[in-house]
Design a protein around this nucleic acid. Structure first.
Length: 482
RNA sequence: CGGGGCGUAGCGCAGUCCGGUAGCGCGUCCGCUUUGGGAGCGGAAGGUCCCGGGUUCGAAUCCCGGCGCCCCGACCA
């Protein structure tokens, strides 16, 4: 019985586990259109929590939301050389409207740099107009060859920030500020530790000067790029003539940044915390932090436990907790437990006649452990429980990452073997030659995820390139990636 | 675009080799009994067997041609 209702385990088939978990938790489903995703209410609720937290962070740092259109004139994409090269192959193009062939085809945005900077050119006149700090929540379309729910779909939801600055230093500071916000969000909300660092030229955003990213390690030891922040330099400013007049009366090009995180983070959440019974959702992002399951035998008990459950729900909600009561009849408590566990609800409170008598509830944590706790002072207790689970999830994920990280392999062979058995992150010296980077990718299927920021680097900087034996110019972090 | 798998009830599948009343499990609906870790019994509803041709007295099954989805590889947040 339990066999047929269980999902494939991570050890059996990680990919099947991921797909079945999403179905079981009702997070998303495949749409009739190839590669597109329907985000179901349980999944969308997580996205809404993410949006709220991030939006607050953006606003607190002076950003404003705006909305730019879905359609972009095709000629716009072509204005920045690297950009067009990067995105042209994966755009969807609208050629007809109202039954007529359009004079100029419209590209469905794969990202909005071009349309946004064309407008910035109009709005920015003077140094007094700078900086412009803008963000938009939007959908984008990229015609990917292979898709997976949340991780890579033809259409996905994200936020894209776009800013314009007076100097390169200011743009760089913005780029790094956002990178730090992303990192904080991923650690404090998703409880997903990330390594931040600089992308190599081969891996950077098409059209950027520099790209920084947040890299997380999933339970199958593959890396997930969870967010990127780009210093665009003056590339787009020059392509779209975004200029301003200085205090001295000179005309100068602005310096831009752009940055984004997407619904892909939900995939990261799943693959960071999920277990063989289903989703484990960090409490700060959970749609329901607590589910109360009333338990009864007689009608009288049903009425009593239900009333008590609703009262408890009201108390906890008043204290700012997201709580729901599972009042369904004709479903045994055990069946409800399995269902809520699959959905990842962090805490469950069982409330039966025994608890009514004792003044307790039976508190079960999604991460394990079940014990009676007094209803008195429960709200305070739950806030503490939430904080504790949030910390525990992050620590567990960090420990897993460290256990699957290799620093300073002794030899090229050790480096290859580690990647060959899907070992995780490997830090090693790199000579900086793009041809070598490509050869490593070719032979090991691993890519340089980033050149880690100082705090992530090894205590002793590597002196030689792991592949060529030549002097190393940087320490790089490799992994096989999603 | 290559390689593999699959399309049959809401979901998961059997039936296809060897043509002959379209089935099983779960779910759903009704009734009664149940409810501290996936309830039981009784009754019921639910199908263009992916689509189009062909062979045949007769096709889910055989033949031809399409389409779609999933998985694995080459591009990517």
């Amino acid at each position: 019985m339990a066999e047929s209702k269980a999902i494939t385990t991570r050890a059996q088939d990680f990919s099947a586990w991921y797909n079945e978990l999403i179905q079981r938790a009702e997070l998303a489903d495949h749409s009739p259109v190839r590669g597109c995703m329907v985000i179901r209410p349980n999944g969308y609720a997580i996205w809404e929590q993410m949006q709220q937290a991030l939006d607050r962070m953006f606003k607190e740092t002076g950003h404003q939301n705006a909305y730019f259109p879905l359609f972009i004139p095709q000629s716009f994409l072509s204005k920045e050389a690297e950009h067009v090269e990067g995105f042209a192959p994966e755009t969807a193009v609208v050629t007809h409207g109202g039954g007529k062939l359009l004079d100029e085809p419209l590209v469905v945005r794969p990202t909005s740099e071009t349309i946004i900077y064309s407008m910035f050119a109009k709005w920015i006149q003077s140094w007094r107009d700078l900086p412009v700090l803008m963000n938009q929540w939007a959908n984008v379309v990229r015609w990917e060859m292979r898709t997976r729910l949340f991780l890579r779909t033809t259409e996905f939801l994200w936020q894209e920030g776009h800013t314009a600055h007076i100097s390169e230093e200011e743009a760089e500071a913005e780029t790094l500020l956002i990178l730090s916000l992303y990192r904080r969000f991923m650690e404090e909300w998703i409880a997903m530790p990330v390594v931040t660092g600089l992308k190599t030229d081969g891996e950077k955003f098409a059209g950027a000067l520099r790209t920084y990213s947040c890299e997380a390690l999933m339970q199958d030891n593959r890396a997930l790029q969870a967010g990127t922040s780009h210093n665009l330099g003056q590339n787009f400013a020059k392509a779209f003539e975004v200029t301003y007049q200085t205090a001295e009366g000179e005309r100068e090009f602005v310096w831009n940044t752009s940055w984004g995180v997407s619904t892909r983070m939900i995939g990261g959440l799943i693959m960071t915390h999920g277990d063989d019974t289903g989703l484990v959702c960090p409490p700060r992002l959970a749609q329901w932090q607590v589910v109360i399951v009333p338990i009864w035998r007689s009608d009288e008990e049903r009425d009593a436990t239900r009333a008590a459950a609703l009262e408890l729900q009201a108390t906890l909600r008043a204290a700012g907790l997201r709580v729901t009561v599972d009042q369904r009849e004709g479903m045994k408590p055990g069946a409800k437990y399995y269902e809520w566990e699959a959905r990842g609800v962090p805490f469950r409170m069982e409330l039966g006649p025994r608890d009514l008598a004792s003044g307790n509830v039976m508190l079960a944590r999604r991460t394990g452990g079940k014990e009676p706790v007094p209803q008195e002072g429960l709200a305070e207790r739950m806030h503490a429980e939430i904080d504790a689970m949030q910390v525990a999830l992050l620590e567990a994920a960090k420990a897993r990452r460290e256990a699957n990280t290799l620093r300073g392999p002794k030899s090229k062979q050790e480096f290859i073997d580690f990647l060959e058995r899907d070992g995780g992150f490997v830090y090693a010296g790199f000579c900086g030659d793009p041809a070598v980077e490509a050869e490593i990718k070719e032979q090991t299927k691993a890519t340089i995820r980033c050149l880690p920021d100082p705090e992530f680097r090894s205590p002793e900087a590597p002196t030689t390139c792991i592949w060529t034996g030549k002097p190393a110019t940087v320490e790089a972090m490799w992994a096989r990636a999603y």
